[in-house]
């Protein structure tokens, strides 16, 4: 979407996206209401069923449907959660945080410097270099895995975490530069000019003026990148070879090896979803913005 919008319309977009329309609405026919209700129910039931099941004892889950709790078959406990935490989900949860937080924070600053230069500095090759970033937005990450594995070996990087931080920093960079440049480029020219008149150099302008003004875009990108790295499976599968695991990998392994142990799978899946869901509910506004701005990510 952002491909056609610069930041201010995008901001409008995001503000309106999850908000109700300005005109009071309520012109829906009963057919429309019914259809919408049906779609909402179909979309919600899978998650709801998982959540309810995660509190039911092992025998109950596989002997009766989760919907029987509504007819009195209630026998809830937290046992599944304790069991799956012992199966490695607890460690994996900590590992996911240790991967996702640095992988989110590190690329932002470098991207912001580049975005400022692309937006407000004149230099030869500016458009050509930026087009490289635009083109790389859709490059399949698969291009990088084999070469990077060799590179990490050649340089002697041992830490799985370091590999993942570096890989996610590299993979997230085109989007970061793209989003931030669109936003920074839309700041009013007078603000930048007035800083110059006051004698501030580029570094000072960037640090004291651009960064504080760009907080909304920085936050939007940060949330998007955090969810991306937290939910990533493929990159972790390839670069975490030293025995540590993140939640997605642990969950996928549980599915593979304990596919019939639904008490573990339901609780495990829900643990893996907690952080994204909290982020979703708390920061919906920013999340939507990251999404609208990031819709060309490859």
């Amino acid at each position: 979407m952002s491909a056609q919008t610069t930041a201010p319309p995008e901001e409008e977009l995001e503000r309106e996206a999850l908000k109700p329309s300005k005109d009071e609405g309520d012109s829906a026919s009963w057919g429309a209401r019914l259809t919408l209700a049906l779609v909402c129910i179909i979309f919600t039931i899978p998650t709801l069923g998982l959540l309810i099941s995660s509190f039911r004892p092992r025998e109950d889950i596989i002997s009766s449907g989760w919907w029987t709790v509504f007819t009195g078959n209630v026998n809830f406990s937290l046992d599944n959660y304790t069991a799956v935490l012992d199966e490695g989900m607890g460690t994996a949860f900590a590992n996911s945080l240790a991967v996702a937080v640095p992988a989110t924070v590190i690329p932002i600053l470098a991207a912001a410097f580049a975005a400022y230069a692309f937006a407000w500095m004149d230099f030869r090759g500016r458009e050509f270099l930026f087009v490289i970033f635009v083109g790389l937005l859709v490059v399949p990450l698969q291009v990088a895995f084999v070469p990077l594995t060799q590179l990490f070996n050649a340089v002697g990087i041992q830490s799985d975490f370091l590999k993942l931080w570096l890989a996610h920093t590299g993979f997230g960079m085109p989007l970061a530069v793209y989003i931030l440049r669109n936003y920074i480029g839309s700041l009013p020219r007078e603000v930048i000019e007035s800083a110059k008149v006051d004698g501030a150099n580029h570094f000072a302008t960037f640090w004291r003026l651009i960064m504080p003004l760009s907080v909304p875009a920085l936050a939007a990108y940060a949330i998007f990148q955090f969810l991306w790295t937290w939910n990533d499976y493929l990159v972790a599968l390839i670069f975490m070879t030293g025995g540590e695991e993140v939640v997605t990998v642990t969950l996928a392994e549980l599915v593979g090896s304990r596919g019939q142990d639904w008490h573990l799978l339901t609780a495990g899946a829900f643990i893996s979803m907690t952080v994204p869901l909290i982020v979703f509910f708390a920061l919906q506004r920013f999340f939507v913005r990251g999404l609208t701005a990031g819709s060309v990510k490859g």
């Binding site: 979309f43 899978p46 069923g49 099941s53 939910n231 979803m273 869901l277």
Partner: peptide, 19 residues
């Protein structure tokens, strides 16, 4: 409600639908 699945990982979603 329609938007919520967006926050769920592909692996998590796969588990939900296996169920």
């Amino acid at each position: 409600l329609i938007f919520l699945p967006m926050a769920i990982s592909f692996v998590g979603a796969s588990t939900i639908w296996l169920f």
